[in-house]
């Protein structure tokens, strides 16, 4: 349904896309996952005909992006990073306008606008100018705009960036419903949890090229076994604890922001390793508040693949667990 190969886009000094390939089969969801500046938005712009790639080919819903951009536009719905709605128009007026520009005809555009307002839970605000909406409401309106013409292919560029937790959950519900309806969806996100929850397949990109692809489980299994997580009672024990963990760790040991949370990937049998760690703590007289085993998250995956974390500065409302941090202690 979406196929791109060898996409390259350069801006003066910066190479935004460096030979990106991607495929989204019909009815599937692909998440493009990467940090800010990885080239996600540039990829979206190339595929939605907003910019022309310098090299490479792409096809969306059977239509060539380079030779028939108008054909592509009539088959896609795009919802951008910042809600591109007219803030002085009401939700209803925004949707009717978009419907008419998709050439649905006035009556059909009005009918479709009402349907979508209902679905997006916006009916009660339908006659207020969009500037009075919350961030989440604007995003839902923007998403509704992408759905007006019931396009076979949907492209959502960071649909939940900057939203609070509740609005993000609502957005996810709406997107999941769409996917259940059989839409083909390309989604970009810098939130690992989002990719995990919504996508069939995840393409991890960094510096404009794909660095890994697979299902969330496949990606997780690449980064080795289980993690042992420890919360120390006292940060002063960190050195001793690190020494103990190093006996079982196959990679570095990550230390949380507060200096009391340590994470290590284990190579051997998880229970055996856990036991050794506990015995070590006993011997070194390290007091712990919490010890546990967990499966690797996509954060771990990203770190393992790129050597840096996915999110450069997690906000307080970031859905990624706040204790997943950047520091690497060896």
């Amino acid at each position: 349904m979406i196929r791109a190969s060898g996409l390259v886009k350069r801006y003066k000094e910066v190479t935004a896309l460096d030979g990106l390939d991607l495929t989204v089969p019909e009815g599937k969801v692909l998440a493009l996952l990467g940090p800010n500046g990885a080239g996600k938005t540039t990829a979206v712009k190339c595929l939605t005909t907003l910019i022309r790639p310098d090299a490479g080919t792409a096809e969306v819903a059977g239509v060539d992006v380079l030779t028939d951009p108008v054909g592509v536009r009539s088959r896609i719905g795009l919802s951008g990073q910042y809600a591109a709605v007219d803030e002085h128009l009401t939700a209803y007026e925004n949707l009717v306008m978009i419907g008419r520009l998709y050439h649905l005809g006035k009556a059909r555009a009005q009918e479709r606008a009402r349907e979508l307002l209902e679905k997006s839970d916006l009916t009660e605000f339908a006659d207020r100018p969009a500037k009075t909406y919350s961030g989440g409401q604007r995003r839902r309106l923007d998403l509704a705009g992408a759905l007006v013409a019931e396009p076979p292919v949907l492209v959502l560029d960071e649909p939940t960036t900057g939203l609070d937790v509740r609005s993000r959950q609502q957005m996810w519900d709406v997107i999941r419903e769409l996917v259940a309806g059989g839409s083909t969806l390309l989604l970009t996100t810098q939130y690992l949890e989002e990719a995990d929850r919504l996508a069939d397949n995840i393409l991890v990109i960094d510096h404009g090229r794909a660095i890994a692809e697979g299902t969330a489980d496949e990606l997780k299994s690449r980064t080795g076994g289980e993690r042992i997580e420890v919360v120390l009672a006292d940060a002063a024990d960190r050195e001793a604890a690190t020494r103990v963990l190093a006996e079982v760790a196959i990679d570095g040991i990550r230390v949380g922001d507060n200096g009391r949370e340590l994470t290590a990937a284990t190579g051997g049998s998880p229970t055996g390793d856990l036991l050794r760690v506990l015995q070590g703590f006993e011997r070194e007289e390290v007091t712990v508040l919490d010890v546990g085993l967990r499966r690797p998250t996509l954060d771990d995956v990203f770190l393992a693949l790129t050597g840096h974390a996915a999110e450069e500065s997690p906000d307080s409302d970031s859905p990624a667990t706040p204790d997943e941090t950047k520091e690497l202690a060896r």
């Binding site: 939605t48 005909t49 907003l50 108008v70 054909g71 536009r73 009539s74 896609i76 795009l78 951008g80 591109a84 709605v85 978009i98 520009l101 998709y102 050439h103 705009g145």
Partner: peptide, 8 residues
């Protein structure tokens, strides 16, 4: 950007 993504 929205306008440019429409078949108008």
């Amino acid at each position: 950007d929205r306008f440019r993504s429409l078949p108008m």
